[in-house]
């Protein structure tokens, strides 16, 4: 089921891919002196499911926000299918075919499930002021409704079509958000923690849906904490820490690297982090930061390739 490539991609940060759909160059974003994102070069392969992992504050969501136009970078440029995507507003990014979901689901609770879907349909005549008043948008609306119902059936939400989206469970909202993104026929789907807060019984079906996106020819990029999830479905994994890409590779290869896994995923990522009023880490968190830093330094001193 893994998409095999004619050429083997080297497992190192910033590795070239044979057919990248998104290419990022020297992107940085600082918040008050802290480098939240600092990525020199990163490519996402077309048709792959790429998992983006890293501890809290590694800059994954910030990178997502930058790529989709929800945040502005300090420096850097990136392209989508060769077209520059930097400096575009979120809606322009979405219209070009890079569609995202959110960590906290943004299902529109006071609209019906069906309206959530129809809202996402692109190029609607009835969405223009004049078009809404005098245009005939009924036929287009009908077509969009058909398409929406097909997608809802695929995501097992068709029974809920006429309920308010607020009535859905957490997992169903994630599904709705994914289905809604598909209404736009995207090229790249960016999922921010699609499994977070989802009933374990639903995760398997969610995973299958993510895989089905790839099988339909879409490129999927997703942020995730859970190593098992990543191992299961991703074709490629990018590890971020402190804003940088510190490793890239096949998931099996990465999970063999105990140092990376422990430092960034295993023992620490669930601890609550503490900061004082000035934003400096205190107590356990301060020790943790020191520990991570020394671990990283030690690894580099030993000449270890972090991505090995």
């Amino acid at each position: 089921m893994r998409v095999e490539l004619p050429v083997e991609v080297p497992a190192q940060p910033g590795a070239r891919k044979p057919d990248p759909v998104l290419v990022i160059d020297s992107i940085t974003r600082s918040f008050g002196g802290v480098r939240a994102v600092d990525v020199a070069h990163l490519e996402f392969q077309r048709g792959w499911i790429t998992g983006l992992i890293g501890p809290n504050g590694a800059g994954k969501t910030t990178l997502f926000n930058l790529l989709t136009g929800f945040d502005r970078p300090d420096t850097g440029r990136w392209t989508f299918d060769g077209m520059p995507l930097s400096r575009l507003a979120p809606h322009q990014v979405a219209r070009r075919g890079v569609v995202r979901t959110f960590q906290l689901t943004k299902a529109l609770a006071k609209l019906t499930v069906l309206d959530n879907m129809r809202l996402a349909a692109p190029k609607q005549t009835g969405e223009r002021f004049i078009g809404a008043l005098i245009g005939s948008w009924g036929r287009q609306e009908q077509a969009n409704t058909c398409k929406a119902m097909e997608l809802l059936t695929r995501f097992q939400l068709d029974a809920k079509a006429h309920d308010l989206a607020g009535c859905l469970s957490g997992g169903q909202r994630k599904l709705l958000e994914m289905a809604r993104a598909l209404m736009m026929d995207p090229t790249v789907v960016m999922l921010d923690e699609p499994m977070a807060g989802v009933n374990p019984a639903l995760t398997e079906s969610l995973l299958q849906h993510v895989k089905s996106l790839r099988d339909d020819g879409m490129t999927v990029v997703f942020v995730e904490h859970d190593m098992d999830v990543i191992r299961d479905i991703s074709d490629w994994v990018v590890v971020m820490a402190q804003g940088r890409v510190i490793a890239e590779g096949r998931s099996e290869a990465l999970s063999a690297n105990r140092a990376v896994v422990d430092a960034y995923l295993g023992s620490h990522h669930d601890q609550a982090l503490e900061f004082d009023a000035d934003g400096n880490p205190v107590g356990q968190t301060a020790m943790l930061v020191a520990e991570i830093e020394s671990e990283l330094e030690a690894a580099i001193e030993r000449g270890q390739d972090l991505s090995a």
Binding site: T68, G69, F70, A89, P90, H91, A94, R95, V99, R100, T101, F102, K106, A107, L108, A109, K110, L111, L119, A120, P122, R180, M184
Partner: peptide, 10 residues
């Protein structure tokens, strides 16, 4: 209800 959701939908 949610501006960002609408932006993300183009």
């Amino acid at each position: 209800e949610d501006e960002d959701a609408v932006r993300a939908l183009g």
